[in-house]
Simulated scan of single mutants.
Amino acid sequence: MNPTLDTVASGLEASQTMMDTIADNLANANTTAYKSETPEFQTLLYQNQTQPGADATGQTQYPSGLELGTGVKVASIKQIETQGTLTSTSNPYDMAINGSGYFQVQLPSGQTAYTRDGSFQVNQTGQLVTANGDQLIPAITIPSNATSVTVGTDGTVSVTEANSSTSTQVGQIQLANFINAQGLQPLGNNLYAQTTSSGAPTVGAPQTNGLGSINQDYLESSNVDVVQQMVSMISAERTYQLGTQVATSVGSELGYLANAAQGA
């Protein structure tokens, strides 16, 4: 392939990745605790024809070089870790983390996963679980005759049972934090898995070790800025269009040269 077309193709692929990422962000604009993503780009290798500082005339040096880029690549897709807005739900089993930290849940495989989606429910045995039935860690069981459930900002879970005027603590929510939360592996269903890049989790009660606090009756909204995403989409679309125009121009030039060669 023509080197110019190779360069253009890398730009088109980068623009497509940008559009795919924006589409995913907009699709999850209403997903609880979703963190928007953005691709990071890096230049490809350069063709150095003249090295900066190389000898020019024997007595002078080139103040700048002659270097031709060969395109762009997507280095990574990074999550934006800003806090989403906390929205009141009036549901006692809904919990939002105000600050850093993740809830811990146990998958059917026994693996521990992590989430900021605190839209918990009670299963048939009274345990707090996610919408998919994954059990909160540590396990917390709500008595069947509980008339009220209270979750403190420090994660203590207390209930008031029927025919009683006093509350009883039935559990303690613990949060996990990571030195590099962007290194977590997305699993889908608002869940993440630990990786060597994220490091081992630091686990503790809310409001300790820099962990966030718990807000009962609230959920964390997505941090997607829809307006900004639309602006980025327009920019990415325009960049893609310009890339295709360059490819068309190069194709026309190559066609002209081919016809000229045949007529010679």
Rank of each mutant, 00 (worst) to 15 (best):
A258D: 15
T248G: 11
L12P: 01
E253F: 04
T141H: 05
Y114L: 10
P39M: 11
N123D: 14
S235W: 01
L175P: 02
R116A: 02
A200G: 10
G188S: 08
P52E: 00
Q135C: 09
V149L: 14
T60V: 08
L128R: 07
G118A: 01
F103G: 07
A131S: 15
T156M: 09
G126N: 12
Q185Y: 15
N180D: 09
Q135P: 03
Y93L: 11
L12R: 02
A131P: 04
T196S: 03
T38W: 14
A260P: 07
A193L: 11
T32I: 02
G133T: 12
D225V: 10
I97C: 03
N145F: 12
L136K: 05
A113F: 10
V157F: 13
T32P: 00
V170E: 14
R116F: 07
I234C: 04
Q61R: 14
G243N: 07
Y192T: 08
T4Y: 06
T195L: 13
Q174Y: 03
V170K: 12
T202N: 04
Y114S: 03
I77T: 13
N25K: 02
T31S: 10
V227W: 09
G101C: 11
G133Q: 11
Y46W: 10
D94C: 02
S249G: 08
T244Q: 12
A193P: 10
T150M: 14
V151A: 02
Q111K: 09
V149D: 08
S64T: 10
G65N: 06
Y46D: 05
P63A: 03
T208D: 01
T57H: 06
P143Y: 13
G263T: 13
Q127A: 09
G263F: 12
K78P: 03
P39N: 14
T248Y: 10
P52R: 00
G199K: 08
V227E: 12
A162Q: 14
T147Q: 15
Q216D: 00
L12F: 05
L211T: 00
Q194D: 15
Q169I: 08
A29P: 00
E253Y: 09
K35Y: 07
D94S: 02
Q124T: 14
E13G: 12
D94A: 07
L184T: 03
T89L: 09
L219W: 11
I214A: 07
Q245G: 01
Q229P: 06
A205P: 05
G152Y: 01
F103M: 09
T125L: 12
T130I: 05
A113N: 06
S249C: 06
T87M: 10
T21C: 07
T57K: 04
V246T: 03
Q59L: 01
A261D: 15
L26W: 04
E40I: 12
L68Q: 09
Y62P: 02
E40W: 13
N190W: 06
S198N: 02
Q127F: 11
P92R: 08
N209E: 06
